[in-house]
Design a protein around this nucleic acid. Structure first.
Lengths: 328, 328
DNA sequence: GTGAAAGCGCTAACAC
DNA sequence: GTGTTAGCGCTTTCAC
């Protein structure tokens, strides 16, 4: 920056400590001296440097947040809320993207720690217990979002329940065949798929509870081909439930070309709640994933942890529904 | 963090400086000592702290980026590219949102400067020359994007030309009435509207060059009512060109309810290039604003400036077209 | 009321 | 080859 507190002291003919008393409104200084110091501070445009104070106090008033990327509305809304919360209390955010790469995730955490961040919000891609242990050794609070990690503070949504809720909408409409498209599941064992796995679990749960329901869980990369053959093999009205609106849009494009909506596929449902769905003439439904609520809760939780408050270790938020043609 | 270089030195029975030589691969140290130090460094999990080194060198390897918000795909793509560029060279980003508020913009800049960032990328909302002067006094490179600010390094798109290109698409289709919807222009004089103003200028230019073309520039908040009355007053096929895809979607919803597409309004065009335009049956066209190119160029330019390289002060990038039904 | 001094973890110049 | 030292700008303790 520009001028230092040392220089201000010289200009005022007082000591460094006195300048500090004036700046921090500390006792032990006469009203007159304080005024003089503050005048010079204003005139010189002095601003206290974080580097010095951080080095001295160990606090940086900066927090880190690591998400997969920014191509997903989920993460931008989450970040938006976190930014909003922390900017109010003078914190700045280091926003980092792991691109679902474990090595990058590790590197970013190291880099953030070198900068002495006060807290970390993380959507983990690692899922090993050793990684959770590693995070615990960091000596700063870490809040995980979306993907749970063994025992760490966590904020997420009730994905399984939400999926059952979605399935119920198909059921109520009399649809008895629903396929669930969840390509990320193919990375099972390689990365943290907690949220996705919960969705798949909700789907299976529902099928188990409703024996007159059937369908397949599609986890392959070429889910489109698989879906095609499933649709060709039957003449029943079929629902397609997607673990993300992204897949929904892709599938919809593909099926539209073949004229299969609404002919055979009677309804599509996504998972995210992109409101643009309602601009489409067939108005697909979508589970609304509460990204903003998660962001706000994660920020609040992290803040509480940084203040060593006693707080719940996990917050599970409900999903809602963007109701489409299916629900009418 | 944990262990300091001082402690490593003690453990190895060498001096602080020797540890430094080992860590930085500097000459003046025997291979043996280096190895011993590095072993201890690894064993203790030592990591150099940025606070100390930043305080000493004045460099933080952190850059700031201030945009309006994250609700706009334009900004998330821009940030994505900047993040990608800087993370490769070990820099971290402070990402800040001004919410189009001049006071917040000022506050964020102050906060960032207190943290000694090495450079700043800014989509300014201020437009006063005094503000530009202020930025120049910061002693770190500042690159502005989208909205130009008197003489500062700038990366943006050729909005005027792109608008003329869009108008041309209507013209070629034989449409002679095109309204341009640009509500942000109502804030003229209060905030930096460079990009929007350029679009409006392109529109007016086109009308001046093509005397058989006509239409109105809609800048009011209640542009919907105004548009309604314009459409009601004529029976001509009319085009509606929107300065953002957001307005396009709103207008489209409104007109759909009245059954006016494609009856009277024969074509809508937006400005952003949100790719799900093509999921809509009427496939609106959209000017593609090159957010990623802008981000990449801004990062490159800032990096060059931080290295005191000689570089062009302004980079103007071309827009392209998401071609819709209009162009067929 | 005010000032002096040590320390936070690092870099860089210089001495041995 | 290796060690010493003086900062960087701040906070905090203690003495006057």
């Amino acid at each position: 920056m520009n001028v230092t507190a040392e220089e201000i002291a010289k200009m005022c003919g007082v000591s460094r400590a006195t300048v500090d008393r004036a700046l921090k409104n500390k006792p032990g200084i006469s009203a007159q001296t304080r005024q003089k110091v503050l005048d010079v501070v204003r005139r010189e445009g002095y601003r206290t440097s974080y580097l010095g104070s951080s080095l001295s106090t160990g606090k940086t008033h900066a927090i880190g947040i690591i998400v997969f990327d920014l191509n997903n509305q989920h993460f931008t809304e989450l970040i938006d809320e976190v930014e909003n919360y922390f900017s109010q209390i003078g914190y700045l955010l280091y926003i980092c993207l792991s691109h679902k790469n474990k090595l990058i995730e590790e590197k970013l955490i190291r880099n953030l720690m070198e900068r002495q961040i006060d807290g970390l919000i993380l959507t983990p891609i690692h899922d090993e217990a050793t990684f959770a242990d590693h995070l615990r050794t960091l000596r700063i609070p870490v809040v995980t979002t979306d993907n749970r990690l063994a025992g760490l503070p966590f904020v997420g949504a009730d994905n399984a329940l939400a999926t059952e809720m979605g399935m119920d909408a198909f059921y109520k409409k009399g649809i008895r065949t629903v396929h669930f498209v969840c390509p990320p599941m193919r990375h099972s064992g390689q990365e943290n798929l907690y949220a996705q796995a919960e969705r798949a679990r909700g789907y299976k749960n529902y099928l188990e509870k409703h024996l007159d329901m059937r369908g397949s869980l599609l986890t392959e990369t070429d889910y489109m081909e698989r879906l095609d053959s499933l649709l060709n093999a039957s003449n029943e009205k079929t629902g397609v439930f997607c673990s993300s609106d992204v897949f929904l849009l892709r599938i919809r494009r593909h099926l539209m070309e073949k004229g299969r909506i609404p002919e055979k596929v009677c309804s599509l449902m996504g998972f995210d709640g992109i409101d643009f769905m309602h601009d489409l003439p067939d108005r697909p439904s979508s589970v609304i994933y509460p990204a903003r609520d998660i962001g706000r809760s994660a920020a609040t939780l992290l803040d509480a942890l940084m203040q060593h408050k006693e707080v719940p270790n996990e917050i599970i938020l409900p999903c809602s529904m963007l109701k489409g043609a299916l629900q009418e």
